[in-house]
């Protein structure tokens, strides 16, 4: 067995013990307030760095949570404002587009954890802090506007999102100023809005929002599904309008409203007030 380190006799060990006991007793017999003050000073040396670091990281985590909540509230208000503006426009025009005011659903904040930078990257991975009852086709938005839709659910807290730049993406849109309807589709590196008649009133800079019309497609399970985006979410602004002589529809190019980057907060719009309500609203 290894004995005491060289140079430390049993008497030396006892002396160290006596010193420690003495120091402890001095601390114990200090008056109440002095004891707390001494603890505070000693803590400032021994444990303050640790607590500073820990509080910093705790703050980071809680700030992200609070930020998500605030962004969600803000975006909800913006959506309500947009919906109210649409209704007012409908009333001013004297005729709406005969669509239901889509329910905004529940906004579940998520973080973009993977965003490939490749030219052909059309997907991002998002992570939710809480398990969500998400499914394919649910719309994904950020504060600027529409981003894409849930493509593949990896797990209760992770999913891959197909961006609007994906080749087979299609979205029913509406010109906010006039109430005209159209279909947005990507064309290479730009977006085009089709199905708008050549005589319709479309101007450069017009705001384009989602129309709430769902394009149904056959999914691999053999069922029909589509992007269930509520009406009124900003999609972009008209960049250019052309009217070819031999076409019945306008050629409308769109500047998308939303871009997303890594570590950004995005929102999945959960469709119904089901179990997702609790999860989405949980702080």
């Amino acid at each position: 067995m290894r004995e005491a380190p060289a140079g430390i006799s049993q008497r030396g060990e006892l002396a160290v013990l006596a010193l420690c006991i003495l120091l402890s007793l001095i601390l114990i017999v200090l008056p109440g307030d002095s004891r707390i003050l001494v603890a505070d000073r000693v803590g400032g040396v021994l444990t303050a760095p640790y607590w500073s670091a820990r509080n910093f990281f705790d703050d980071m985590v809680s700030l992200r949570e609070q930020n998500n909540g605030l962004r969600r509230e803000l975006f909800s208000l913006e959506l309500e404002t947009a919906a109210a503006r649409l209704r007012r426009h409908d009333e001013q025009r004297g005729a709406g587009c005969a669509l239901e005011q889509g329910a905004h659903g529940l906004l579940a904040p998520c973080r973009v954890t993977t965003r490939l930078r490749g030219r052909f990257a059309t997907m991002i991975k998002i992570t939710s802090p809480h398990p969500l009852p998400w499914r394919s086709w649910q719309p994904v938005v950020n504060r600027q506007g529409m981003i894409g839709r849930i493509r593949t659910v990896v797990g209760p807290t992770e999913a891959w999102v197909e961006l609007m730049t994906a080749p087979d993406f299609a979205l029913g849109v509406e010109f906010e100023r006039t109430g005209l309807l159209g279909v947005l589709q990507p064309r290479g590196d730009r977006f085009e809005i089709g199905m708008v008649g050549r005589d319709e009133d479309v101007r450069r800079g017009d705001l384009v929002v989602t129309s709430g019309i769902t394009e149904l497609r056959d999914d691999p399970a053999g069922e029909q599904a589509g992007l269930d985006a509520p009406r009124g979410i900003p999609v972009g602004r008209v960049r250019s309008v052309h009217v070819p002589n031999d076409e019945v529809f306008k050629e409308i190019s769109l500047e998308p409203a939303a871009v997303c980057d890594r570590n950004e907060t995005v929102f999945v719009i959960l469709s119904a007030p089901d179990e997702g309500a609790t999860a989405a609203r949980r702080p």
């Binding site: 006991i21 120091l23 402890s24 601390l27 109440g32 603890a39 000693v42």
Partner: peptide, 16 residues
């Protein structure tokens, strides 16, 4: 002593 810092009223007890 470090553990005592979280209970300043008993400072020194756990050190002892």
């Amino acid at each position: 002593l470090v553990m005592d810092l979280s209970i300043p009223t008993l400072l020194g007890v756990q050190a002892l």
